[in-house]
Simulated assay, not measured.
Amino acid sequence: MKLYLFYDDGAQAGLGHYRRVRALAHRIMRLAHITIESVLCPTQHLESIENLRAFCAQISSEESLGAVVDSYVFGMEHFALLDSVFSRLVCFDDTNRAVYPQGSFILNGAPNAHKLYPAHMPYHLLGLGFALCDEVFAPIMAVREGVRDIFVSFGGSDLDNLSAQILPFIESSVLFSAHNPSVDSAPTIHLVLGRYYAHIPPTSSYLICHRDLSPTQMHALMQRCDIAISAGGGTLIELAASLMPTIMLESAPNQHFQITQFAALGAFKHAQSLTQIPTLIESLAPKTAREYAKATLVGLRLGQEIESALRDIFDLDF
């Protein structure tokens, strides 16, 4: 059987869509009693409805388990076509777009996602119980006395180059102050640049740049770090699953809801501008603050409901 994965990719979209559909596909494969082949379908080749129609004409419904879609490129006509081809359609959503066919399953794993869907139905899979990321992002329980390493990531493309813009604000925090007697040496900033990062990488005496890390490499780097600064996309869920105290900075409008809801839970800090970064770093410097953040994240139970839902949707054996 084949599972078709439609996702936005490239410099304008980053890697979050790809990682979400792959994480869902891995869960399905683990639960299934049959061999399932994932068919990767980047939407930049299928944005034309004619191209999508020609692609779908080659699909055998008897050999298809269904489709998973994570796309802002596709509109109502695209989703209607997919709905006519696949018996099961699961659509990732962040903002309650009015484009999905009736009967398709809508997945939004943001905290309190039900607030976005006032008339939510059983086919809406909403909230942190349905949050998805690669299972390599296991909880990191250890909390060191001081902040020695800072993890920074703004996704696969970072179109606004927040990676460079934020460095002076990090370095102006109390952690880097020569007048702070509690600082034996300044922390190291670990900046993760995504696959589609198109700017000149920044430089600093405190900085190590990492490029296009795999999920396993990302989690290994998180294990070295004490706090994180991140945009509000897929990396935020990975940091939550890893129990990493994090400062969130919005890099795209569709991230706004998830960021505000994580902030309301008290799990993460919300930087509404770069100028707030030094103060928020200082607030996470005490060990007790980071212990509180980890304890809050442990209680969120991310992804606890997804496997039961997948068994029902795809008729997978227990």
Rank of each mutant, 00 (worst) to 15 (best):
T95N: 13
Q102N: 14
S214V: 12
T188P: 04
P201R: 06
H199S: 11
Q44F: 15
P278Y: 08
R88E: 10
L310Y: 05
D134A: 08
D312A: 14
L249S: 01
A264W: 03
A271I: 07
L46G: 08
I106V: 15
S205P: 11
S182T: 15
F79C: 07
E63G: 00
I49G: 05
L175Q: 04
N161S: 07
M218T: 00
A289Y: 05
A263I: 01
D212T: 04
G232D: 08
G16L: 02
G266W: 09
L116T: 09
E291A: 11
I36T: 07
M244N: 01
I28W: 05
K269D: 11
L207G: 05
T35D: 13
L310F: 12
L300D: 07
P111V: 09
N254Q: 13
L207S: 08
A23L: 01
A32V: 10
Y72F: 14
A142W: 00
A98K: 15
Q217R: 13
G129M: 02
E250I: 07
Q165E: 11
E291R: 12
S242I: 03
A295S: 14
G14C: 12
E305H: 15
P187L: 08
V90I: 12
A13G: 00
S60E: 11
I150L: 01
A198N: 14
S64G: 02
A32Y: 10
R301Y: 12
R97C: 10
R301F: 10
I36Q: 06
A110F: 02
E37M: 12
G103W: 08
L46K: 11
Y18I: 09
L15K: 10
Y197S: 12
E145P: 05
A131M: 03
R53P: 00
A11F: 03
R97P: 06
R301H: 15
L265V: 06
E62R: 13
I28P: 07
V69E: 00
F6G: 06
A113S: 09
Y72K: 12
A80D: 14
N112V: 02
C133R: 05
F257E: 01
H17C: 08
T203F: 11
E62I: 07
C133Q: 06
E307A: 06
L193D: 04
Y72R: 13
